[in-house]
Amino acid sequence: MAVSATTDTKTARAAAAREKARRAPAKWLLAPAVVFLLVWMIVPLGMTAYYSFRNYNLMMPTVSGWAGLGNYAALWNDPTFWSALGITLLIVGVCLVITIGLGLAFALLFHRQFFGRGVARTLAVAPFFVMPVVTGLIWKNMLMDPSYGIFAWLARVFGLEPIDWLGQFPLASIIAMIGWEWTPFALLVLLTGLQSLPEDQLEAVRLDGANKWHEFRHIVIPHLGQVIYVVVMLESIFFLTSFAEIYTTTSGGPGTSTTNLPYYIYQAVFNQYDIGVSSAAAVAAVILANFFAIFLIRFVAGNLNAGENR
Rank of each mutant, 00 (worst) to 15 (best):
A2E: 13
T6F: 03
D8I: 11
D8W: 00
K10G: 12
A14G: 05
A17E: 01
R22P: 04
R22H: 12
L30Y: 11
L30E: 02
A31S: 12
A33D: 11
L37P: 03
L37R: 03
V43Y: 09
L45W: 04
M47K: 01
M47S: 06
T48C: 09
T48W: 07
Y51R: 09
Y51V: 01
S52K: 03
R54A: 09
N55W: 10
N57G: 12
N57Y: 13
L58C: 07
G65A: 08
A67M: 02
G68P: 12
D78C: 07
P79T: 08
W82M: 00
L85A: 08
G86N: 12
L89G: 02
I98M: 13
T99L: 04
I100V: 15
G101T: 15
G103W: 03
A107E: 10
F110W: 02
F115Q: 00
T122C: 03
A124Y: 01
F129G: 10
V130Y: 01
M131V: 15
P132S: 10
M142T: 09
D145N: 15
Y148N: 15
G149S: 01
I150E: 00
I150G: 00
F151W: 12
R156D: 06
R156H: 09
G159A: 01
L160T: 04
P170I: 03
P170W: 06
L171K: 10
L171D: 04
A172G: 08
G179L: 07
W182A: 01
T183K: 06
P184N: 05
F185D: 00
A186H: 02
L187M: 03
L188E: 01
V189K: 11
V189C: 11
L190D: 02
L190S: 02
S196V: 08
P198N: 07
D200H: 15
Q201G: 07
E203N: 14
V205W: 09
R206E: 15
D208I: 05
G209L: 13
K212W: 13
H214V: 14
E215F: 05
F216V: 08
R217L: 15
I219A: 10
I221H: 01
P222A: 14
H223W: 15
G225E: 08
Y229H: 06
L234G: 04
E235C: 02
F238H: 10
E245T: 13
G252K: 13
G252N: 09
G253D: 05
G253C: 00
G253Y: 04
T259Y: 07
T259M: 15
Q267A: 12
A268F: 00
Q272S: 14
Q272W: 06
S278E: 07
A280C: 13
A284H: 00
I287S: 09
L288F: 14
L288W: 07
L288K: 14
A289P: 03
F291A: 11
A293L: 12
A293N: 08
F299D: 00
G302F: 09
L304C: 09
N305Y: 14
N309T: 14
N309F: 14
N309K: 15
R310Q: 10
